[in-house]
Structures are given as C-alpha cells and as structure tokens.
Amino acid sequence: MLKKRSRNSRGSNEINASSMADIAFLLLIFFLVTTQIVEDKGILVKLPPWSEVPPDPLKLIPRNVFSVLVNSNNQLLVRGEPAEVNELKERAKEFILNPKQREDLSQAPTKAIISLKNDRGTNYKTYIQVYNELKAAYDELWDEECMRKYGVPYSDDLPLEYRKEIKGKIPMVLSEAEPTSYGEE
C-alpha cells in the first residue's frame, strides 16, 4: 500500500491543467453575459439648495435677463417672442457677449442671467433640448474665450486657475423658476 502510493506520486507530481481552460471559459462566458459596457453620460447640473422661503424677487434690469419659457405644447417663448429650439444657442451667445453693445442685450457677461421656466406638462425631451442648447451656448463661449487666451479649447483637464479665470469672466447663471402647473398628465 505504502509502496504503491509513493510510486504513484513519483510518477506524476504535476497538477493536470487541461481543465483550466474550461473553467476559465465558463467564468468568461458568465462575465460576457452579465456585462454591460454602457457608459453613463448626460448633462451635469448643479441644483440650488432648497429653502423654505421663496427667494425675494430680485431687482433685475430687463436687458440682463434672457427669459426662456417652454409651454405644455412644447412651444418656446424667448424674451416675449415665439422662437425655435435651433436658434436658441446663437441668440443666447449673442445675448451673453453682446459684441455690438446693443441696448437691449446684457451689459456684461457677468451680469447676464438666463431664466428658464417650463410647465408641468412640458415634454422632458423638449426640456432637455432647450437645456442642452443653453449649455452649448456657454460651452462654446468658454471654448472661444479659452482659445483666445490660452490657445487651447476649454476642457476639464485644464489647470484649475485657468478654468476659474474663464468661468469668472463668463459665469453660467441659469436660473430655473418653479414650473406652472399646466398640462399635467
């Protein structure tokens, strides 16, 4: 008995690794099935903190406010006139920078305020389109400003002081009013 065992162990003292591939394949298939390579992307926003008291109506000069209203039929009203989503970006950019120093556009980029208001019946898709255009306006302005100053497009990889400088010059002020309750589903 003892003799036999010792002979056996002497004969093959290696682990048979041929089934290793099978085991690995099994695990591989499991991970293949459960994997989702879906990146989560979206429009990042920062909400204002909640306060129980409604904010005081600020005394704003009308020329500094770019009001965007979206009603429950997904129609836009920009500064009191009907508008389309695709013209929103250019109008917002012109309003913020005011390159021709027009009397009815903002005094300075730091004073410009974009005010967005929607109904409870507004489609979420429309809301995202509008928000996207307004954000695109700011993103492009930051890009242009950054290009002019540092010769590189604006990105989050830039040093913090660069980004602070750019955002200090053109701060993104997008205030969202409490929606009116029209067209609730």
Binding site: D40, K41, L44, V45, L47, N118, P179, G183, E185
Partner: peptide, 24 residues
Amino acid sequence: TMGIVQDVKVMLRKSNQLRLNYSA
C-alpha cells in the same frame, strides 16, 4: 412630462443631493 421630474428635483434639493446628471 416635466411634472414628475420636477417633483423628483424638488425632493433631491430637499435632501441636499445637488449634483444631478440628466442621462442622455
């Protein structure tokens, strides 16, 4: 529609969760 989204946003603000990402 925005109504239900608005309710969620208000609740997030009330619970002081202010970093929000509209997935798209």
